[in-house]
């Protein structure tokens, strides 16, 4: 005879399995790990940097979802006493609204990001954004506003306002996608503007080893204390970024498993001496959804 307690456990397991298979039809998940490293050139202070991050996502059909990211970053300086370690935590909530007039999909996003660590200002970012995608998925538009508050080490604390506008469209029967994200950042009475174009090429999947997607992009202009909603990154350095360039390759190894490699360079003006330096980086990520 099965003891009642054991029967209870078995019943619980059965209920869990049943509910998870029923839920699996409505919920889907994604997870990814990203490792990045880079070297500073022409910088009198900075030497190299390393970061690792994890992303998790929970999505209810195409209706709404939540992405969560946590990262550890280490910046090494020539004088090791100045080394910086910081942690980043963030989540981004989204809700899709399928509209009949105007026809298309509106996506409401709310990003909330924190940077914390003993060597840096605590940063809190609130980033609402709204994006529109037309029914044929050939044009997208978006506007957003990020409010970043830096406090802790810098006294008094300060606020950075960032306004973004995005335009994206497909060309050549959706094989290519062009995206332009514009940043207007207001900090300390100054305004900084950056245009961030990127170009995506979706390759036909003739083999698992041929990449499914190639991306080239960059940034033109100046920006400081920028926040990127897509990557959930907060650039909390006071150095002014003056342009960047990158290329990325993504492989779709199975229906649900991706691998990508990215290389690029970012250019900055040091806050301390206004000298220009470069950060060359590479990162790789694996991600899956199910």
């Amino acid at each position: 005879m099965i003891p009642n307690k054991l029967l209870g456990y078995k019943l619980c397991i059965f209920v869990l399995l049943f509910s998870s298979s029923a839920m699996a039809e409505m919920w889907y998940f994604n997870a990814g790990v990203n490792v990045s490293g880079g070297q500073y050139q022409q910088s009198e202070l900075r030497k190299n940097a390393f970061s690792s991050s994890t992303q998790l996502g929970l999505h209810y059909l195409e209706r709404w979802g939540l992405n969560f990211r946590t990262a550890f970053l280490r910046f090494n300086f020539h004088d090791s006493n100045n080394n910086i370690q910081q942690n980043e935590v963030g989540f981004r909530l989204y809700k899709n609204i399928f509209s009949d007039w105007p026809k298309g999909t509106f996506t409401l996003l709310l990003g909330n990001y924190w940077v914390i660590g003993p060597d840096v200002d605590t940063t809190r970012v609130l980033y609402p954004e709204i994006n529109y995608l037309n029914p044929t998925k050939s044009v997208s538009l978006g506007v957003g506003y990020a409010n970043s508050i830096y406090s802790g080490i810098t006294n008094p604390s300060f606020t950075v306002n960032q306004f973004t506008g995005t335009l994206g469209f497909s060309v050549f029967t959706k094989r290519f996608w062009f995206n332009l994200k514009n940043y207007l950042i207001q900090h300390d009475g100054l305004s900084y503007y950056t245009g961030q174009p990127s170009f995506v090429w979706y390759l036909p999947r003739s083999s698992r080893f041929i990449p499914s997607r190639l991306i080239v992009g960059g940034a033109i202009g100046k920006r400081v204390y920028a926040v990127e909603q897509e990557t959930m990154l907060v650039y909390n350095t006071p150095d002014v970024q003056k342009g960047s360039i990158f290329s990325s390759v993504q492989w779709r190894l199975t229906d649900y498993f991706f691998f990508s490699l990215t290389m690029g360079a970012e250019y900055f003006n040091a806050q301390t001496n206004q000298k220009r330096y470069q950060y060359s980086f590479a990162n790789s990520s694996v991600s899956a959804f199910w």
Binding site: E25, M26, Y28, L61, E62, R63, F98, T105, P135, K137
Partner: peptide, 14 residues
């Protein structure tokens, strides 16, 4: 399907 809600359409087809 017309709204591009593929998962939701697939759920009902399933």
């Amino acid at each position: 399907m017309a709204q591009g809600r593929w998962r939701e359409a697939a759920l009902h087809a399933g």
